[in-house]
Write a protein that binds this DNA or RNA. Structure first.
Lengths: 116, 116
DNA sequence: AAGATAGTGAAGTGCAGACTTGACCAATCG
DNA sequence: CGATTGGTCAAGTCTGCACTTCACTATCTT
């Protein structure tokens, strides 16, 4: 489980993923949600944007599978969806592998990269 | 080295990073560069966009420290800069840690997340 | 039932950003 | 030298998207 095998990530998915995280407010949302679930209103208050805006952000995050939500009564509670983060991890691992492989043969840059 | 310690990533930097990777062409660029360095013209030909556009993308990638470039003679060769990927990794690790910690107490979702 | 509260839909505004074109400079080649 | 070729600068275009407001539908509270 949790194999180190190179798992490729579909471009469409990558698009959704990076687009989703490209916005500061959405990143703040996953920041909040990674701490604990929250409702639309709470997120709205915290981020200081309209509930409508939160709803729109949520849709984007859900499409990227970075968040989930479910409505009970009149309140919708959002929580983090690990799947997105996992996919992101995969994307990085894939590319990391590629250049690490290449840099091994060339032996440079790497130290610099680690120091900030 | 390469410690597992939580290394926090500055929001401004995260912005640059995710914004940079939010574009499909730029992702294709890092894809190419992670294989081997390339010149502006080569990238232009491969991505089928103007050299000017490539230059603009390059600027974005460099700001995010995902690429470097240097000009010798009249040709500019671009190569991948590991620093960006490393920072990205840090960002994920940080959030991953947060929700893993929380999910450990709640014990759910995780299996689903791993299967796609 | 009246009134607040939680959220959704539609439509509009304004800005950012991904491109292009065209003029231009600097190396390289014949 | 003259002609390509590689790259950059400066505008300008056009689409996408973050966000708002307004109107409306549940749902909860008292």
């Amino acid at each position: 489980m949790n194999s180190t095998a190179p798992r490729i990530i579909d471009p469409t998915r990558a698009d959704a993923l990076f687009h989703a995280l490209g916005d500061a407010n959405r990143r703040r949302m996953v920041g909040l949600l990674s701490d604990h679930p929250a409702t639309i209103s709470e997120l709205s208050a915290f981020l200081d944007i309209s509930k409508t805006a939160v709803g729109q952000h949520l849709a984007v995050l859900e499409k990227a599978r970075l968040a989930r939500s479910s409505k009970v009564g009149r309140t919708r509670t959002c929580q983090l969806d690990p799947a997105g983060l996992v996919a992101l991890q995969d994307w990085i691992n894939f590319h990391r592998r590629e250049w690490e492989e290449r840099l091994e043969r060339l032996g440079d840059l790497v130290c610099e990269a680690n120091s900030q």
